[in-house]
């Protein structure tokens, strides 16, 4: 049960049941969709850019605890970041999930998702929102 205990911690489940920044964003300047066709999970990410800076980030969609919590924490982290900072965070997050690198301190509470690296079947869940981010800004 250790992997479950490690992954499904209070932080993750809180973000799943009460996702932050959830809902449509009026005046979004960037709108991107992340889909996981194999399971039907979807995340739609909306950003309001002011110049080069992400002033606001919100998302809607349906997904599992991992994809929802990941998008919730991601949108928390994105606000106030520049585009290049945001893309760097996406790289760091994927390095943690896909390659198993130790979490960069910049990822903050997203480090609770580090255990997903040991669950190859769930990598796509964790990266769903981040793929939408890269799609939107890349």
């Amino acid at each position: 049960m250790s992997l479950l205990d490690e992954l499904y911690r209070e932080t993750l489940l809180h973000h799943y049941k009460h996702p932050h920044n959830f809902g449509e964003l009026a005046g979004a300047t960037v709108d991107a969709q992340g889909d996981n066709p194999s399971c039907g999970d979807q995340v739609r990410l909306m950003l309001r850019l002011e110049g080069d800076t992400i002033a606001q980030a919100r998302f809607v969609g349906q997904g599992c605890a991992i994809s929802t919590a990941s998008a919730s924490m991601m949108t928390d982290l994105l606000e106030g970041k520049t585009i290049s900072q945001a893309l760097r965070l996406a790289q760091q997050f994927k390095a943690m999930i896909v390659e198993g690198s130790s979490p960069s301190p910049e990822l903050g509470e997203l480090s609770v998702l580090a255990g997903v690296h040991q669950l190859p079947a769930r990598v796509k869940c964790a990266t769903l929102g981040w793929n939408a981010l890269e799609e939107a800004l890349g």
Partner: peptide, 28 residues
């Protein structure tokens, strides 16, 4: 609970099940 979270948890006990729409989205 989302099906994927249940399936991941079941896998920790050695149970291999599928989670998702099983290629039947209109049915789901």
């Amino acid at each position: 609970l989302h099906a994927h979270d249940v399936a991941t948890a079941l896998e920790q006990y050695g149970i291999a099940v599928r989670a998702g729409h099983h290629c039947a989205q209109p049915l789901h």
